[in-house]
Each structure stands twice: as C-alpha cells, then as structure tokens.
Amino acid sequence: MAKLVKVSLVDQVCDKIKENITSKQWEAGFKIPSEQELANNFGVNRLTIRMALQKLNTLGIVETKAGEGTFVKKFSFRKYVSEVTELFMKPEMLNDVCEFRKCIEIECVRLAIERATSECILELEKAFDEYERVTNEVKEADNIDIDRLIEADLEFHYQICKASKNSLFVLAFIAARESIYQYLKSINVHRCQIIENEGRSIIEFMQNSTYYHKQIVETIKNADFQKCKKIYLEMIDLATPI
C-alpha cells in the first residue's frame, strides 16, 4: 500500500498564505500580519512562519522590507520564467522553437478565429500598429534595432495566444517567450544576411514583414484559417527569407 506523503508545516503555511493571495483576500501591496500574529492564526511557532515567508520571498510572491514588514508582491509569471529560463536554456533548444510555435501558435490562431472577442481583435490591431510603427522607424533609419523589433513581434503573437481564450496556451507561450526571443533574433539575423547576399534592401524586408503581420490580422478577422495558417508557417520557418 502506498504511503501518504506528509506535508511539512512550512509548506502548509505557504499554501495557506498563497490561498489568501490567490483568493484576492490579500492583494498586491497588502501588508501581511506579523510573524507572531501568523503563528497564532495558523497554530505554529514563529520559526515555521519565518521559514515559510523566506520561501515565499524566494519565489517572488512576497517581499520583506527591513523595518516595515512583509508585503504581497505583484507577481509576474513572465518575469519569473524569463529569469529561470537562463538556467536551463541551451543553444540547441533553439532548433525546437520552430516546432513549438507550429504546434502552439497555429492552434491558437484556429481558436482565436473561433473565440476572439471584439476586444481581442482590438488588442491584436494595437499590437500590429505598434509593430508597424517600429518597422517604419527602422526603415527611416535604414538599420534594424533587432531588440525593439522582436519585442513588438512577440507582443503581436502574444495577443494571438490571448485571443485563443486558452489559459494554458498563454502560459506555454510565456514560458517559452525567452526561447522564442532568442529564436527570432537568430532568424532575423539569418534573413538579413540572405537579403544582403542577394543584394536586396533591408527596407524591402521590413515591408514584407509588415505585410505578413497585416495579413494575419485580416485573415483572423475574416475567419480564414487555411490562409492564415499558410502565412503563419511562412513567417516562422527559419529557411524562409520573407
């Protein structure tokens, strides 16, 4: 017979505090009761409370300020994942990004066509407008600020994931965001090299890129999944110099 795993008092306290936070009983900025008050409320000693708070501090859920107390921190899943990604991400993982995007983002496109609200479409259009603005600035300067371009591009694709109304797909995209960022940096440098070798203008590259993004918006609005899928695959294929 399998034995039940005993949960430590520290983990039990952590769970109770997290429950208060997730239920919005304690919101961001809320000052958590003192160690003694928590010890009395949870029926444990102060050392257990202190260890639980230290664990939550490490996770970025709460923040202890010297002389002030402990406060609920505004938790950013994206920031947290971005920081820990650096610990396990390896160069060879970039080869997996293309497959990941084809599986996750194409499905998000299909779901977005079915489920996107007018507010979702508006946010997607705003993301496209920002992407277009960045590309126009690039064309005027006749050079590419890769980092700004990628941030605008990521926000555009993130809005598509949000429009799918599938919270796990959104979390998956956020978790893979840093890897996708590195992939996009690699693919854009690769494409620029191809363009330069062919004697083409970087401006042409930017115009094509903007056109593809615009077409994705329009095909989602027109509920044309097959056309949108075709455009999407061309954009995320490393071998395609758009």
Rank of each mutant, 00 (worst) to 15 (best):
K3R: 15
S8C: 10
S8I: 00
Q12K: 05
V13H: 01
D15L: 15
K16V: 06
I17T: 01
K18P: 03
T22S: 11
Q25L: 15
E27D: 13
P33I: 13
E35C: 06
N41Q: 12
L56F: 06
L56H: 04
N57P: 07
G60A: 09
G69W: 06
T70K: 05
E83R: 14
F88S: 10
F88P: 06
N95L: 15
C103F: 14
E105K: 12
V109E: 08
R110K: 13
I113C: 11
E114W: 08
E123R: 15
L124G: 00
A127V: 02
E132I: 02
D142F: 07
D142K: 13
D147W: 06
L149M: 14
D153H: 10
D153F: 04
L154N: 07
E155G: 06
H157F: 11
Q159C: 07
A163G: 10
S164V: 10
S167V: 08
A172W: 06
A175V: 01
S179G: 15
Y181T: 03
Q182A: 14
Y183S: 01
H190R: 09
C192A: 12
R200I: 04
E204W: 13
N208F: 09
H213T: 02
V217S: 05
D224N: 14
F225T: 00
Y232K: 14
Y232W: 09
L233T: 11
P241Y: 13
